[in-house]
Amino acid sequence: MKQFTIHPVAGADWQLADGVGIAFTNSALWMAITAVLVWVFVAGGMKRALVPGRWQMAVETMTGFIDNLLEANVGKAGRKYVPYIFTLFMFILVGNLLGLVPLGLIPGVHAFTFTSHFTATGVLAILSFSIVLIVGFWKHGLHFFSLFWPANTPIFLALPISLIELVSFMVRPFSLALRLFVAMMAGHVLLKVLASFVIAGGNGGLGIGVAVGVPSFILMVAISALEILVAGIQAYVFALLTSLYINDAENLH
């Protein structure tokens, strides 16, 4: 569990106001690295050449991917959310992947996955949820509450259905935040457990080392590959669900 511990890197006593500490922690450091990497990646595709090079092609593929995602789920009105969804997707994707980089091989350096903290994923989820609320009430006013009364619902079902809809709506930010945090944490814990098997097996002598350590190591390699996949999928799911929720607000039935 040490890999999830947050400790200050600089400014341990920085405070925004009395009692509101904003120490620059290892978590904040990896957020900064993520931001810089996203910036470097996208800046590399800013040549705006008519015939794109490889890097520009990669960047345009990512923006086109998000563009298509919003086009498919929200429609033409979805284009104005591309900057937010793209930033969200890239920030989560790079954050997830950075946690999987085996930097622990370098003595004294420890990778940190800020997406394995619900304090971080929660902020992103609340941001997405706020956008849905703001857009919904801005566009539809109080009519936005008809979201809780699906079309063609019989009158006598209106109350129970709207209660269920309200709960499922309110649970969205929690499910968004918890899904990402749980997936990231579970993957890292699983890798950690398997790694401890390898170490313990090796310490247990040659026989146990071969019988336990080698299969655990092979499984670890496979799970690492799976975790890379999960890193992409969780970023995609976060972006996809956000765009679906935005669709609810943008195109109220």
Binding site: I6, G21, A23, T25, S27, A28, M31, A35, H117, V123
Partner: peptide, 13 residues
């Protein structure tokens, strides 16, 4: 860590 996490995430995001 809550305030630090929220603050720096908002800053960098």
């Amino acid at each position: 860590t809550l305030t630090s996490q929220v603050f720096w995430l908002l800053v960098f995001f």
